[in-house]
């Protein structure tokens, strides 16, 4: 699979920096920002496959960030990360289109698998869209 572009969003600087290092060691193209607002700004300018998003952050929280990301970049997959075991938030996140929900501390490989799965889903989704466009284009050509 080609390189996966991941954006990590967490206000815990130390946690995020460690995670970034470990992701890069595993050949993932990872970038990190410390707030949901910065994440949205980042997404405007840089293509991203998967966002790993902390649920609880000062300022815009993870759930609002998830909504905003899904609205503006529907193809981007989001994995929610949290220090709380909160069923309601977990289910809400997934209903809003999050790919998965992970609790800290998580195994780095587990996160990596999820990132790969999420990216795979995105790629398949893109292929289907492309295909549909192709079909529509053909139909248009046919009627023209």
């Amino acid at each position: 699979m080609e390189t996966i572009r991941v954006l990590l969003v967490d206000d815990e600087v130390e946690f995020l920096d460690t995670l970034l290092k470990r992701m890069r060691k595993r050949q993932v193209e990872a970038a990190g920002v410390y707030s949901a607002e910065d994440a949205l700004r980042y997404l405007e300018s840089s293509p991203v496959d998967v966002v790993v998003l902390d649920v609880k952050m000062p300022g815009m929280d993870g759930i609002d960030a998830l909504k905003a990301i899904k609205e503006r970049h529907p193809l981007v997959e989001v994995i929610m990360l949290t220090g709380h075991a909160n069923v309601e938030v977990a289910i809400q996140g997934m209903e809003l289109g999050a790919f998965d929900y992970l609790m800290k501390p998580m195994d780095i490989d587990e996160l990596l698998y999820k990132v790969q799965d999420a990216c795979k889903k995105k790629r398949l989704h893109e292929k289907r869209i492309q295909k549909r466009k192709g079909v529509e284009a053909e139909e248009e050509n046919g009627t023209a």
């Binding site: 075991a85 909160n86 069923v87 977990a90 998965d100 929900y101 609790m103």
Partner: peptide
């Protein structure tokens, strides 16, 4: 209890 419930639910 809370974390296992959350894991199972998700």
């Amino acid at each position: 209890v809370r974390s296992r419930c959350t894991q199972v639910s998700t």
